[in-house]
């Protein structure tokens, strides 16, 4: 089937099968590799992308469903300049192996879009579907809270 999908601001006309999931199409047909294959059943969150600015599991979305919609991955978030969140992830060691990092950045980005100054529970809730086996989460939560505090400083 022919579909048109916008990915990180670029429009793509693609030929996909109904059984192709968005994750595979992003990785194999578009070459966007930051959404990772981790469990393929919606449990781990490493395939997280923003679909019309909201996080989804790209392993649980058929590519044909995305016709006419807009997908954003971490390549699109930090294309010109890393976001504050990404900067803080580096300085606070908020990732180790880095495999879950793209998905976590997107989940945190969605949270901060909706709620610029979240509390610890909000952050935990927002990240609760993104599994990280390396960090123990503490440095991730710290980074997201730190972005919130920064934004709080700018607009009290």
């Amino acid at each position: 089937m022919q579909v048109t999908i916008t990915v990180n601001g670029e429009s793509w006309d693609l030929d996909v099968a109904p059984a192709d999931v968005l994750l595979d199409v992003l990785r194999e047909q578009i070459g966007v590799k930051s959404p990772k294959i981790g469990c393929e059943r919606g449990d781990c969150g490493s395939c997280t992308v923003l679909l019309d600015r909201r996080t989804v599991r790209s392993c649980l979305v058929l590519a044909v469903e995305v016709e006419g919609h807009e997908v954003t991955t971490v390549e699109g978030i930090g294309a010109d300049r890393l976001s504050d969140l990404q900067e803080l992830f580096i300085t606070l060691n908020s990732f180790q192996c880095g495999f879950c990092a793209p998905g976590i950045v997107l989940s945190a980005t969605e949270l901060l879009d909706e709620n610029p100054n979240p509390d610890r529970h909000d952050v935990q809730e927002a990240l609760s579907g993104n599994l990280c086996r390396c960090t123990g989460y503490e440095p991730i939560i710290d980074a997201v809270l730190a972005v919130g505090q920064r934004s709080g400083e700018v607009t009290p």
Partner: peptide
């Protein structure tokens, strides 16, 4: 709703 999976699932 808040106990259902996680945001990336609940959005769909």
């Amino acid at each position: 709703a808040e106990t259902v999976a996680s945001p990336g699932i609940r959005n769909r």
